[in-house]
Write a protein that binds this DNA or RNA. Sequence first.
DNA 1: TATTGTTATACTCTATAACTATA
DNA 2: TATAGTTATAGAGTATAACAATA
Lengths: 165, 165
Amino acid sequence: MTRNTAEVTPTQLQAYFAFTEVSSLLRHAVEKQLRDAGDLSYVQFQLLATLGDSPDGRLRMTDLADRVVYSRSGLTYQAQVLEGRGLVTRAPSSDDERSVVVALTSAGRDVLGAVFPGHIDALHRLLFSSLTDADIADLARILQRAADHLRADPPRSAAPRRRKA
Amino acid sequence: MTRNTAEVTPTQLQAYFAFTEVSSLLRHAVEKQLRDAGDLSYVQFQLLATLGDSPDGRLRMTDLADRVVYSRSGLTYQAQVLEGRGLVTRAPSSDDERSVVVALTSAGRDVLGAVFPGHIDALHRLLFSSLTDADIADLARILQRAADHLRADPPRSAAPRRRKA
DNA sequence: TATTGTTATACTCTATAACTATA
DNA sequence: TATAGTTATAGAGTATAACAATA
């Protein structure tokens, strides 16, 4: 009987369960929208959006894998798929011949543009419409802190590889 | 140029991105813990935990699929796996001969018990340790509301099937 | 006719390990 | 020796559609 599950308050449990439920339901809905609007999987959208967010729309493979929390081989697979659809290009870095730089193409930006409005609409309908502005501000503040904390942990794309330092 | 992505405030975007980041990082960490501690996938844990939460530890297939947001065939697959490992049983319902009732076995409860402490520890370390009690209470309140709203939408386990009424 | 669940199938995704090339 | 990325492989998971049985 390992019934001693440390200390968890009911409020903590409620927060956690609500979080996972929102996460799951939102994820399903968003996945459907992305599939319908742009024939993108969630990971593919994350990859394109991450590239779109970065300066020049380009990132090294490993950096991209780190941000999306993905294995290197998994990223290679998806990068091939996206390249095959003309949404990204891959080219060796001039700085470091070992590195490959993934860059968003204009077609990739178009797809992102085609998908984003519906994505936002879904967010409004599913999430924001039920919350006040103050709630949303609280959420942003709290989750930003949690994200910063989580990111500090070292869950690197490939386990056996260490960080830069 | 569908550049009119409706109205999204920076705060909303921040809330959304932080939410997805926390969700993704937490999910990865928790999946690893579940795999290590009980050789369970995330979905399998959700299924066992949902059964454990319900009265008598038993639910009909469709009800279980609905709660975990899962396709019927996907649940059949996982139920077979879990039954093969002796963690659940399946038996036809006496009320309705069409229905199958899935029940948690004592071995299933043991696995849940073996996995839960580490699960809680991970939550503490990854999530709660970075937040104040007030933050957690806010989170619980806000996300509970969001979850209620999302659940009201009809994202049933199998699309072509309607709800009870 | 509607609902419950299973099966057959086909596909997407994912990670691990081995490998090549560059630093 | 360490790092960047690819490939080969093999397995897990998922959904759709067709099906059988019961209500």
